[in-house]
Design a binder for these strands. Structure first.
Lengths: 182, 182
DNA sequence: GATGGTGTAAAGCGATCGTTTTACATTGCA
DNA sequence: TGCAATGTAAAACGATCGCTTTACACCATC
């Protein structure tokens, strides 16, 4: 019954470790023990499975954000959630952006999906910035987003402490924005 | 004579557009018109070509930094150079980090090279931070690095204006660091 | 004017790619 | 009890993969 979910979870681990184009269908399926027949019945194609993995990945992270992890307010939660996420999943760069890069000229549907997901994520950050400041500040939201994605990327070649650095920098930028408004 | 350079330049364009694992040897060579024979004589293997591309890419960007582009001081130059670079090469995410992700479990030499390159880049930022502040501030250097890599990544799904946002945020963080020291 | 370095053209190596297909087992619902 | 859905196992499709090899052309230097 949850075979479909097993395949998505297994494929996510496979793509995380080997990259989206670096592993074949058989290799991906080995992570969940499913057969090729089931893959094509459930997802239609290999790319269909990729889309399902990306959708679940984004949905899971957004849901995790709602758990209000940590104690640094709406913006601090953002980075505390990221640190917890990277601890659990390993830091290999944002899976969505990796797919965006690997399928840039091979699958427009995947590219479009990731763009939509990132727009949604930026809006979520803007919402949190407005909650903290009491007024909207699109420029600050973008800067916090930059710190977030920078930490996600750099953690793969450095260590998880960069997430704390990003959190701290976001706090400094926020205080500066508050100072300018008073 | 410059056939080797042609192959590296062509391969860089190929990998930029299709990803490192998303295009075959024949496709890569079509960008420079070279033959497979020449590839294996010059680079030994496909991965050898990848290493050469990454080395040249890093060296070229570091050399570009020395041209002191823009007028925002050592830190402003960093982001002005990035913006010029992305305008010329297109914004598809950092090629080095893309390679690091795609070869994470397939080629340790590539992974190690990128790690070294990123360490060197972080030191370059730290050097510039110290020049501006008059004293070393490793935490600030890391934060500027986060903004830089975040802008590089996000420009691929947004637009180049995020580089200006990163530059501005770096300026705010620097002023805050100066304030703390006085 | 032979030689060695560097290049192209093209065929072929075994392996693997994404996908389809055939054959059969299990399960839940009518 | 019977049927449809869902699953596995395994073979095979043509295409493409990274790589090797054979054969030949150019062009500088000694």
């Amino acid at each position: 019954m949850n075979k479909r979910d097993d395949m998505i979870a297994g494929a996510a681990r496979a793509f995380e470790a080997e990259g989206f184009r670096g592993i074949g269908v058989d290799g991906v399926l080995a992570f969940s023990g499913a057969s090729t027949r089931t893959l094509y019945k459930q997802f239609g194609s290999r790319d269909g499975l990729v889309l399902a993995v990306l959708e679940k990945r984004h949905r899971d992270f957004m849901a995790r954000l709602d758990r209000r992890i940590g104690n640094g307010g709406p913006l601090g939660e953002l980075f505390d959630t990221l640190e917890q996420w990277l601890t659990e999943h390993g830091a290999r760069g944002c899976m969505l952006l990796r797919a965006h890069g690997e399928y840039a000229s091979a699958n427009g549907e995947i590219v479009a999906l990731v763009r939509r997901q990132k727009e949604e994520f930026e809006r979520e950050i803007a919402r949190r910035v407005e909650t903290v400041l009491g007024f909207a500040d699109a420029a600050l939201a973008t800067q916090v987003w930059l710190l977030f994605e920078g930490a996600t990327a750099i953690a793969s070649v450095s260590d998880l402490s960069v997430v704390g650095s990003a959190k701290h920098a976001a706090g400094v930028l926020m205080l500066a924005a508050q100072g300018r408004s008073s």
